[in-house]
Design a binder for these strands. Sequence first.
RNA 1: GCGGCAUUGGCGGAAUUGGUAGACGCGCCAGACUUAGGAUCUGGUAACGAGAGUUGUGUAGGUUCGAGUCCUAUAUGCCGCACCA
Length: 960
Amino acid sequence: MDYNFLEIEPRIQKQWDEKGIYKVSNQSDKPKYYVLDMFPYPSGAGLHVGHPLGYIASDIYARYKRLCGFNVLHPMGFDAYGLPAEQYAIQTGQHPEITTEKNIARYIEQLRKIGFCYDWDRQVRTCDPKYYHWTQWAFARMFEHYFDNRQQKALPISDLVKHFETQGTEGLDVAQTEPLSFSADEWKQMPEKQKQATLMNYRIAYLADTKVNWCPKLGTVLANDEVSEGLSVRGGYPVEQRVMRQWSLRVSAYAQRLLDGLDTLQWTDSLKETQRNWIGRSEGAEMMFQTSQGVRLKIFTTRADTIFGVTFMVLAPESEYVSLVTTEDHRKEVDEYLDWVKHRTERERISDRKVTGVFTGSYAINPVTHKEIPIYISDYVLSGYGTGAIMAVPAHDSRDYAFAKHFNLPIIPLIEGADVSEQSFDAKEGTMMNSGFLNGLQVKDAIKKMKEYIEAEGIGKVKVNYRLRDAIFSRQRYWGEPFPVYYKDGMPYLIPDHCLPLELPEVKDFKPTEDGRPPLGNATCWAWDEKQEKVVPNPQPLPKGQGSSINSSLEGDREGIYPIELCTMPGFAGSSAYYLRYMDPHNDKELVSRQANEYWQQVDLYLGGSEHATGHLIYSRFWNKFLFDLGLVVKDEPFRQLINQGMIQGRSNFVYRATAIVADEVNLTTAQEKAMQEGRLYVSQGLKDKFQTQPIHADVNIVSNDVLDIQKFCAWMPEYKDAEFVLEDGVYKCGWAVEKMSKSMFNVVNPDDVIKNYGADTLRLYEMFLGPLEMSKPWDTNGIDGVHRFLKRFWSLFDGITDEEATKDELRTLHKTIKKVTYDIEHFSFNTSVPAFMIAVNELAQLKCHKRQVLEPMLVLLSPFAPHIAEELWQQLGHKDSIIDAAWPKHEEKYLEEDSVNYPVQFNGKMRFTLPLPKTMSKEDVEKAVLQNEQTLKYTQGATPKRIIVVPGKIVNIVL
RNA sequence: GCGGCAUUGGCGGAAUUGGUAGACGCGCCAGACUUAGGAUCUGGUAACGAGAGUUGUGUAGGUUCGAGUCCUAUAUGCCGCACCA
C-alpha cells in the first residue's frame, strides 16, 4: 500500500479533534511542563513557510515531553490588537474587527493542517473583551501602586498616602517622575486635585507630560522599541519628538530587577546581552555645580576622576536649567538655538552630527578646583539621560573634545602620556596627572577615591543610572484596549473593577488622524456615569485636541457624567501577560486562579524571534514582576528557558532576459534572434555570461530544483506568453539569491502548497532538517524530495509486519536511534535527528526488518516529528489509543555495545592502520596488544616508543 | 565606537568531553529495472595524484602526541545598542 498522505492527514486530524486528545487539564498527578510559542498577530497575508518553524520545534518538544510522562500545556492564541492588525484594516478599507476575525480564521485553518498538538480550548485573543478585561484590570493595579526603591517592590498607593500624612516626603526612597519635597502638613492642606496630581508622580501607571516619539503618518505616539533610527519600525514613517500628555508605565523602576533576573534565566547569551544593553546600567556619581547666580546644577558622570579637567559645562536644550542660567544678553541667541533644535527631526539629528551649541552667558564653579567655567547648551547632551547636564572633560571624552575644539575652549590632559593634540583619550586606563590629590593613581583607583571624596565633602553622591526609560502607554488609535479611566476635574480616576471589561465602543470613523485626535473621539457613547456605573452617551460633542491632553479639558454638563479616556493601549499591553491567561483561560473572576498558577508556575520553554528582545520580552518581564510583587503570581520571571528560532528567508529565482550577444560562439535560431530583438528571449543561468542580460524574478512556485517549468512560466504573466528560451542540457536553469521572503520578490512559499504536494509530515521534517533552529536560513525546496522519500521508505517498512524476535543488529539500530533522537530533542538540535531517522530506515531496509519489536518504538520516536504518519501506522498496528499516550522508549547501552572496536593506531599523530580489539579491554591491555602487533613493529623499526597514548574505545597514538 | 554571533566540498549542513573531518540530504556521475521517466533501486562523489600518498575546516601564529573544536592576532559577513556623559 502506498503512503497516501493526502488521505491520511485530514482523517487523522479529524480524529484528534473528535477525541479531543490534546485537551489539557489543570488537575493531574503528572509533573507539568509548559511549552509556549510567541503568539502571532494575524496579518492579512496568511502564514508563509517561515512562520511555522518555531511552532514545529515547540510542537516536537511538547509531544516529546508528553510522551515522557509530563502534563504538557501547549496553547496558541492571537495577538490581535495593535498597529499591524489595524494598518491592514485601513489598507483594505474594512473594519479591523472584520479583518481580524477573517485573518484569525485563516491562520487557524493553516495551523490545523500542520498538525500541532495545541489545546484550542485555551485559545486567547487579545481583542476579546473576556481577555482584555484582565489587561485593563492589570493597568488599574499599576495605577494603584508605586515602587519602593529600598524594598525594590511595588506597594499600594494607600501606603504612600499614609506616609505623606505622617511624614510628607521625608525618608522616602521611591521611583518618581520628578523629585518632590513637602511636609505632612503641606500634604494635608492640598486640595483634592493637587493631591491627585502629586500621586501621579509616583504611580506605576501614570499620566505625565513627556517627550514622546510622535509619528504623524501613523497618527500615534510610539514606544522607544517601536522606533529605529528615527523611523517607525512598523511602516518606516518619520518620527518626531514632542511633549505630550501621555500614559506611561514606570518600567524604569524595575531596571535593577530586570537586570538581576537575567542571571537566573536559561536564555541565550546574546539575548541577555541585548537586554543588558537596553537596560544600560552605568555606575557613576551625581555632583552639584553652583553658578555665579547661585543656581545649583546637578550633573551625572561615570568619570568622577576627571573633575580636574572640566573646562566647561553643557546642558541639554530641553533642560529646565536652561531658563535659570541664561543671562539677558544671551537670551536671544539661546532662544534661536532652542528653536532650531526643536524643529530638527530625530532623523536629522542622527544623520547630521556636526557640533552645534550656544553659550548661556553664565559660569559655574568647579566644586573641587573652585575654578570658574562657562555653561553651554548643546543637543549632544540628552535630556532623557542622567540629569540632562554634564561636566565636560574635553581631554578624555570625544564629544566634549569636538565641542571644545569648535568653541576654542581649553583642553587639560589628565593622564600621563596621553596625546590630546589631535583627539581625546577616552580609554579608562593610565596614570593620573594635573589632578591634585589624584595624581599618580590609576584611573580605576582614582574613580573610587573621587567617589569617596564626593560623598565625604557633600558635593554629590554615588549614583547608578539606567538607560531604560518608562514605556509610553497611550496610542491615539482605535484598535486597542480602552483605558479603564474617566476624567473628573481634569484628573483621571479608575472605572471600578466590577464594571470591567470596558468594551471598545463602535465609532463611525476609526482611522487615525495626523493631528493626533484619537478615533475614540468619534464615539457618541463614551462617557462615564459615576452613579449608575455604566457607559452613557456623551453629554456634548468632543472638542478637538491631542491625545490624552484632550481629556483634561472635558467637562460633563450633567452631574456625575464624565468623559472616558480616548486613547487606547499599545500592542504590547495585551501580549505582556497572555502566558498567564492560558493557565486559566475561562476564569471570569481572576486573571488566573491561585491554584492554576501554582500548578503551571511559569513558562518552561518559550520560543520566538529575537526581534522581541527589547520590546515584548522586557514588558512581559516587567508586567510579571509587578504581578509577583502583588502576590498574584508565584514566579518572579515569566519565561524560564527561551529559544530564538532563526528567520526563514526567501530564496528567489531569476530568469535572464537577453538583450544582446557578447560572446562569439553563440548560434541562435532565427526565432530566438527575433525574440531577442523583441525582448522576449531568456537564456539559461549557465549561458548568461555569453549575453548581455537582465535578471528578472521568477515565481519560485513554477521552479523546481532551479529548473524552470517553461509552460507554467509562459502562462504566469501575459508578458511572458511568447517567451523564447536558450536552454542548457535541455532545460532552463534559473539563478538564485537569498532575499527577504516577500510578495514582490515572488519567493513566498505557502505551507498549504507544500502540504498539498508532500504532506504536513514532510513539511515538518523538512523545516527541521533545513538547519539549526536558531540560525537564519533561506527556504530552499531543493532538498524536500529527499525527506519525502524517507517517509515513503519508512512507510514501506510496515508492509508485512511480523512478530518475529529482532536480531542483535536490528536492536542496535533501534537503540542507537533512541539514544541519538532523545539527545537531539533535549538539546533542540532537531536538524540532526532527521538524518538519524534516515540512517535507521536505511539500515532496517537493508536488514529487511519488518518486525514489530523494532518498528513500534521507532514509530513513537518519529511521532513528534511526523505525527500523522505515526498515528496512522500506530492504528494499523492495532492500537486503540492515540500514539501521543504511548511511552517514550529508553535506550539500553547493552544493545549498543560492540564486541570489538577498531582502534586507529597513529604514529606521531599520523594514522597508520586500524586494529580490532575487544571493547572491554583495559587501557593497559590495549597498549600491550598494540605493542605486540606485527604492524606496530614495522613502524617502530626497533625504536622504543617514548609515549603511548590510549583513549579507551577511541584511538592509540604512539610517540616515537 | 561598544557588545553578540558566524565563516567547513558544487549547495544546505554533520562532527555531544580536543581523538579516523565532510554524517545525512540535495546536486552530479555510473549502473540496474523500464516503451518512457522529474518513479524506484545499487554504487561512486573534498582537492591534487596513474598509484602509494600528499594537502585540506576564512587568514597568520601558538598550546598539544593529536586542533574544525582551546589561546592570540587578523579579515569578511550578519545581528543588537549607540552623541547614554
